[in-house]
Design a protein around this nucleic acid. Sequence first.
RNA 1: GGGGCCGUGGGGUAGCCUGGUGAUCCUCCCGGCUUUGGGAGCCGGUGACCCGAGUUCAAAUCUCGGCGGCCCCA
Length: 533
Amino acid sequence: MRMRESTSGSFCKRCSMHFDCNFTPYLSLKINPDLIGHERNLNIVPEVLSQAQEVMIMEKKALPPKSEFSEWYHELIQRAEIMDVRYPVKGLYVWFPFGFRIRKEVYGILREIMDREHDEVYFPALIPETELGKEGEHIKGFENEVYWVTHGGTTPLDVKLALRPTSETAMYPMFKLWIRSHADLPLKVYQIVNTFRYETKHTRPLIRLREITSFKEAHTVHATFEEAEEQVKKAMSYYKEFYDRLAIPCLICRRPEWDKFPGAVYTMAFDTIMPDGKTLQIGTVHNLGDNFARTFNIEYEMPNGEHSFAYQTCYGISERCVAALISVHGDDLGLILPFEVSPVQVVVIPVLYKGKEEAVLKAARELGEELKRRGYRVVVDESDERPGAKYYTWELKGAAIRVEIGPREVDEGTAVVSFRDEKKKFSVKRDEIPEKVEEWAKEMRERLYARAVEAMKERVKYCNSLEEVEEWIKKGVALVHLCDSEECGAKLDEIASVLGEVFELPFEVSAEKKGKCVVCGREGRLNAVARTY
RNA sequence: GGGGCCGUGGGGUAGCCUGGUGAUCCUCCCGGCUUUGGGAGCCGGUGACCCGAGUUCAAAUCUCGGCGGCCCCA
């Protein structure tokens, strides 16, 4: 960086030099906390520089602390080899093999749940402009975000093709062909595909993307509104189960009218709270009523020969679920993943000493093989690094259970075991390990969930006044009573986003379902308000 | 939507203001020796000035444009 006069007139408080010194406190603190992160400015004072550089070297390998959430997330996602952010197009990122393994495990659960009553399908990524534009509300909601394919080679296309921002308008013209009688209903399908949205806001890996790579979208068609209503409830219970298995607590709200899915009757949303207090929407369930059926003419013949429009729902989850997984559980050392989705469920680390390598390696490999036979994902880390370096590496990557075997353990027939979410180590008879893994995994998921719920609880507070809301949303989610009027909603929306009427929280709150609107004082219902991603 | 900052080996950086030396240092990576219970050490090696145009005898450095990234506010 060039040294130059600050043009804005503001100066860094720490080093009194130009204002953009990029102060990075997490790199600091062993020698002189005031200096660290200011090494550029300190270049002008060589003897101080060398001291600061020393610290840089010592501390370089540590992640930023999780309390610096934005930096922590960005850094972790690369260092743990989840996404490569260097792809040269804004908002598009590359899944590393390790990240993709996490995706595979997470989406494996989602698939398993969906497969119980949905058929998997695949619809094309290109949607003709004529179909995309049919439903008025729907297209209004997406028109600023659509990517267009305008040419085939050098020939301009007669009808432009949109890269799907979501697949309703790709699927529903086909549903019209598939559905003719009541016997064809209900229809329940899902697909896991990429979708494209030209995001104008700040993009972030897994969170705000121009290509969503892993959009699980389910679409159902029913004979009556009531059946669609039933399906909404089922979908919500599926999503609850999914996030329960990931040990991610969710806040479930009914989105306000102005924020529902374009074309829907109403939208139910799952949000979780990130470590910085902002919420992340990680799932939505929409009751579409017969809005799309009327637009796309999806009709069926009833047993009595009369015709009726069908009723539809759709619901989706994207790779934001992986972002939530990383953010909710991780700590200063890196990823913490529930056993069920960790790419490395057990890591075995042989501690080698000269002359005793053979016996240690043999014991480590035997244990590794036995665990693999039982179907666990296991790594026996025989690399050349020293044990300490391996501990850090596997902590960064979220290996759930670590087993150390050294000469001492070989003699005793034991191993030293530790869990990623706990500091303590303990000794176990080696041949008892395989049968204990399942129980350990279960306990670990429970600990993670309990911890996540506690963290969420601390971020949610009932607020009595707009001033209180304004103050609290810096920290987390504010609960308020809000009436049904648009004006009151808009007023609140100026302060932060209204997530909607609260349907479910993963813990008890001391707030009534109904109460006086925080804006106007009329009767209102319990709503959540927060800063959002 | 508004504002600010930045682009130098795989990662982090120095050099830029004031144009000119073989482009600095750390890390990663490769080879060798040595070591191994919480990020070891020594020796050797590979590897970089975002793209385009302009100014100039000369551009990492100055100017303009593009692309990309980060942060803050709404």
